[in-house]
Amino acid sequence: MNIKTGIYGKNNNSAGKRKSPSILNEIRPKSSVENMIENPVHASNPVTLVRNSIGMEFILVPAGDFEMGSPSNEKRRKLWESPVHRVTIKKPFYLGRYPVTQEQWSKVMGNNPSYFRGEKRPVETVSWEDVQVFIQKLNTLEKTSEESSAYRLPTEAEWEYAARAGTTGSYFFGDDESKLKEYAWFLENSGLETHPAGLKKPNPWGFYDICGNVGEWVQDEYHISYKGAPSDGRAWESLFPSVSVPVRIRRGGGWNGNAGCCRSAERLFAAQDKKLNSLGFRVVKEL
């Protein structure tokens, strides 16, 4: 089956071709490698985006508060998604509109480790450690300073805040699992492989593939529950500082996960040196 690319090509959930982005008025001076671009297709609310020198697009996420985790009556919940706790995201930030693609990874790293090949598909089979190298090289490429690197992994709280997009249900579209196929590639519709980013509908803030397709590494180490979790949205680390290979959180389900793995509160984990063909990432661009 010939699937058109989702980022720059045809969207198979809407008729016709997607409109070409147009340049918007700047809210600050424009550099040669960064442009403001049009609101994403399907997004229910206006959003602000920027694009960097290798074509990565980022959505501005506002500061705010949310309830992180899942209540005891949520279907398919896990014990380590509790207790539900209030988190305040104090500073706005940009988050990748899509997971990082194989094309973007190759531009920075000069290789493609992915099992399922395709330039517009999410990069996968990358460890958390590999992602740190990518981010370091991306910051060098974009000429950011070491004192305040512009790019990094999202924290677990930032990821869930952006995934929920102001909603409180099991999914950002509500609690009805039957609607999931409109938004995500998962076990029931993926054909046991990844797909080009952006073919499904985005969440209310304009993020594509925030659930399904590939899971996504975040910065935090795994903790068995949210007891003692930071309330300010920062990364939660150093539970076992003496462990040689820390365990990190992965979010968002994937092509091989069931519907429950695509819930906004779902959290899984893997050793930070683990490489899986169902696990990729998206990045934060700091203001």
Score class of each variant (00 low, 15 high):
residue 2 N to F: 10
residue 4 K to V: 11
residue 4 K to N: 10
residue 5 T to H: 06
residue 11 N to Y: 00
residue 11 N to E: 01
residue 17 K to M: 10
residue 20 S to I: 12
residue 21 P to S: 04
residue 21 P to C: 02
residue 22 S to F: 13
residue 25 N to I: 13
residue 25 N to T: 14
residue 26 E to R: 07
residue 26 E to L: 11
residue 32 S to M: 13
residue 46 P to S: 11
residue 49 L to H: 03
residue 53 S to I: 03
residue 54 I to D: 00
residue 56 M to G: 02
residue 59 I to W: 02
residue 60 L to V: 04
residue 64 G to T: 02
residue 72 S to E: 14
residue 75 K to I: 14
residue 77 R to E: 12
residue 80 W to M: 06
residue 82 S to D: 06
residue 84 V to Y: 04
residue 88 T to E: 12
residue 88 T to A: 13
residue 92 P to N: 09
residue 97 R to L: 14
residue 104 Q to D: 03
residue 108 V to M: 00
residue 111 N to S: 11
residue 115 Y to H: 11
residue 119 E to Q: 09
residue 119 E to R: 07
residue 120 K to H: 10
residue 120 K to W: 11
residue 131 V to M: 02
residue 132 Q to W: 03
residue 133 V to P: 05
residue 133 V to S: 08
residue 135 I to G: 04
residue 135 I to A: 03
residue 139 N to K: 01
residue 144 T to W: 01
residue 149 S to L: 10
residue 153 L to V: 09
residue 154 P to W: 02
residue 157 A to Y: 05
residue 163 A to Q: 05
residue 166 G to T: 00
residue 168 T to I: 06
residue 173 F to E: 09
residue 175 D to K: 05
residue 175 D to A: 08
residue 176 D to A: 08
residue 177 E to H: 07
residue 181 K to T: 13
residue 184 A to F: 06
residue 188 E to L: 14
residue 190 S to E: 06
residue 195 H to S: 06
residue 199 L to Q: 15
residue 200 K to E: 00
residue 202 P to H: 01
residue 209 D to A: 02
residue 209 D to E: 04
residue 209 D to T: 05
residue 210 I to V: 15
residue 213 N to R: 00
residue 215 G to N: 14
residue 224 I to K: 13
residue 229 A to Q: 04
residue 229 A to E: 01
residue 229 A to Y: 09
residue 231 S to F: 11
residue 232 D to W: 07
residue 235 A to I: 07
residue 239 L to N: 14
residue 245 V to D: 11
residue 246 P to D: 06
residue 248 R to E: 10
residue 249 I to W: 04
residue 250 R to G: 13
residue 256 N to Q: 06
residue 257 G to L: 11
residue 259 A to W: 03
residue 261 C to Q: 08
residue 266 E to H: 15
residue 268 L to P: 07
residue 270 A to R: 08
residue 271 A to S: 13
residue 273 D to Q: 08
residue 277 N to M: 08
residue 278 S to L: 07
residue 283 V to C: 14
residue 284 V to S: 11
residue 284 V to F: 12
